[in-house]
Amino acid sequence: MKKILIVDDEDVIRMLYGEELEDEGYNVITTGTGHGLIGLVESEKPDLIILDIKMAEHNGLDLLQDIRKQFYNIPVILCSAYSSYKGDLKSIAADYYVVKSADLSELKQKIKMALEGHIPFQSTRE
């Protein structure tokens, strides 16, 4: 079972996404803060991270750069209520960018694509 880590400071989002993705057959873990995120990724070894951008104490785009420095191959989907961050070049380091919606079909589709993504002989550092 693939493990998904949701990083979002809104309880409702964590609950809604968690339930929907568990129904899809994923093992879901959540955190409401970017504090200790790298340690959490290290210990939990998720197969994919869903990362909010505008959080009370953290900017998801900066967290994304931190993740990429150590875990280059973990797929990360930026999931924000705002589409404007798409224009920030930092968002290029994510696998996908999804604008939050009550309909999770796009998010589910991008999760599937990110988990299916495959390149032969891929470097671990990349």
């Binding site: 990429r68 280059y72 070049l89 380091a93 993504g117 891929q122």
Partner: peptide
């Protein structure tokens, strides 16, 4: 032989912000 195995795509590291 390389590309027939590729599915979807992956981002690359970004430098120089």
């Amino acid at each position: 032989a390389f590309w027939k195995e590729v599915r979807w795509s992956k981002p690359t590291a970004i430098f120089g912000f």
